[in-house]
Design a binder for these strands. Structure first.
Lengths: 227, 227
DNA sequence: CATGAATTTAACCGCTGGGTACATTTAATT
DNA sequence: AATTAAATGTACCCAGCGGTTAAATTCATG
């Protein structure tokens, strides 16, 4: 990530001994780890600095203060998850298959983005105060709703989706499964064991929630597994 | 809660000018507020002490240190939620109605226990380290599973529940809705507005998830709302 | 090569906040 | 009344941590 001087870098700066962009990226990466691990108040700036390839002073130089750094970290994980969602193209699939694909992909995406999950949890502890300040986030979140709305519209037009189906509600449903499955592993395991979070139970769970969503949306849907 | 001298109190202590039990309760109540509001590292012992009817010294006298206090708070909200669950009796209902009742009650219980939700979120941020240490919690959590298992058994015996239905999986499902609905309000609202968390949308949501669970469990179930 | 803005270093600071020392009061016991 | 142990009040400590100061280094530019 640091490597040599990237002369491919455009803008007005060609090659510095130490590239500020790389430094910023490095700080952000470490800070993401630390905030995700310990929360806003729990994370330690000195510790973040120590793990960085640069110094504490640089953190303040580039990000102002602890909260400024936290905000950038938050924006980073949000846009990173949404970017991965944008890669998913369900335009070529029939509405039922498109929805199934969206649910499965969301489930998997959450399972594979523990940093995102933890930072969203942390941000909720802070009542969304920092997310609300961000300008970048609101527009990011349209894409997933748009995608769901498009699928719903096609499903209704084709006559296979129920009338009452609402994209936002659907998103809430899909997120609740997918998020909880990661966010509450620790306490759930402490109470009931971790078996449900290992294979093959996870695969079964994904199948189950997908079927439940489809059953709620698609007229006359009858999953194979529901004898 | 303080009132007069409780001579009904057994043990070896009859009446003190200042009842230590009441002091402990008072500390716990305030600490619950503060930890739920700010997290483990975010909460401030001096601030907790200030809001108490006693002094910081007493907190350390009764709870040892910050983490000890946090543990007791955690145990408190857990047992409080489970106690409210125990009040729910579905023994007299047919399996389908019993399950419906359990889902609705869980949904409502979570919506009405914001402290519990926040503290569980916080505990998950800490990877369940403190919950795992607690001896009181593991046994508390049996009751809800037992209740679900009993309903499932009756439903299968009656021939109205599917064979594959598993109580733990069911609990995971019901919890995911109910928990996420409260835990992620802030960030969800920041992204998509708060309309879904107000009436009448909440009632619709509850209805929807209940129907989804029943459809997944009860053979041939067809909710009215699913045209 | 002098200028100066951008970038980086190292040392430093003050206060917050978890935790403690020690004296003192209270109520049961003898 | 004297003794004792639990319960409490007050003042204090001090390390950790967020944030800063001031100066040095790097490189484009005239």
């Amino acid at each position: 990530m640091d490597g040599g001087a990237e002369n491919t870098d455009n803008k007005r700066r060609t090659s510095w001994k130490k590239d500020p962009e790389a430094v910023k990226e490095n700080i952000l990466a470490i800070a993401t780890e630390e905030f995700a691990a310990h929360g806003l108040s729990g994370a330690n700036i000195n510790e973040i600095a120590r793990k960085t390839s640069t110094s504490k002073r640089m953190i303040y130089y580039y990000f102002g203060d602890k909260e400024g750094l936290y905000c950038k970290v938050l924006e980073g994980v949000y846009s990173s998850l949404r970017r991965s969602e944008d890669l998913l193209d369900v335009g070529g699939l029939e509405p039922e298959q498109a929805l199934r694909r969206l649910v499965e992909a969301t489930f998997d995406a959450h399972a594979n983005a523990p940093h995102f999950i933890r930072l969203v949890m942390i941000e909720n502890i802070h009542n969304g105060d920092y997310l609300r300040k961000s300008e970048i986030v609101p527009k990011l979140n349209r894409s997933i709703i748009d995608k769901l709305e498009e699928v719903c519209a096609r499903g209704k037009a084709k006559g296979v989706f129920r009338k009452g189906v609402d994209a936002l509600e659907l998103h809430w449903l899909i997120s609740s499964f997918s998020f909880y499955n990661v966010s509450n592993r620790a306490t759930f395991s402490a109470s009931f064991g971790a078996s449900i979070f290992a294979q093959p139970r996870q695969a079964i769970l994904k199948q189950r929630v997908t079927d439940m969503i489809l059953a709620a949306v698609v007229i006359g849907y009858q999953p194979d597994s529901w004898s």
